[in-house]
Amino acid sequence: MLATVMTTALSVSAEAAGHESPAPTIAPPFVVGGVLFAIFVVLMFVTLSYTNLGRRHEANEEHADPHRQHPNKHDRHQGASSL
């Protein structure tokens, strides 16, 4: 059973391979690849241009504002009054 299926699949694929033409492209493959490579290099340089944003100034601690409408829960109760 398996041999019959494999033989049929092989013969169908061999028959189809002889009559198939390649898909049309806008340019030769090396030109398409070169353009895509250039686009990705430009995107890489744009990404690398943002690497200095974290080093502009020293990080400052955020003070806990008790009047904030939705205070974060990570301030370890610095803005809460003691009970």
Rank of each mutant, 00 (worst) to 15 (best):
M1D: 15
M1T: 10
M1F: 10
L2F: 08
L2N: 15
A3F: 04
T4N: 14
M6L: 15
T8S: 13
T8M: 13
A9R: 09
A9S: 14
L10K: 10
S11N: 13
S11R: 09
V12K: 10
V12S: 11
V12R: 06
A14V: 15
A16G: 03
A16C: 05
A17H: 01
A17V: 01
H19G: 12
H19L: 14
E20D: 08
E20S: 06
S21A: 12
S21N: 08
P22Q: 02
P22A: 04
T25M: 08
T25V: 09
T25Y: 06
T25P: 03
T25G: 05
T25F: 06
I26K: 07
I26P: 04
A27Q: 06
P28C: 06
P29L: 07
P29Y: 00
F30Y: 13
F30I: 08
V31Y: 01
V31W: 01
V31R: 02
V32G: 01
G33P: 00
G34N: 05
V35W: 02
V35Y: 02
L36N: 09
F37I: 01
F37A: 09
F37P: 00
A38W: 10
A38Q: 07
A38I: 12
I39G: 06
V41W: 04
L43I: 13
M44F: 12
M44W: 07
F45N: 01
F45L: 08
F45C: 04
V46N: 02
V46Y: 04
V46W: 03
L48I: 07
L48K: 06
L48F: 13
T51D: 11
T51H: 05
T51P: 00
L53V: 07
L53M: 05
R55F: 09
R55G: 10
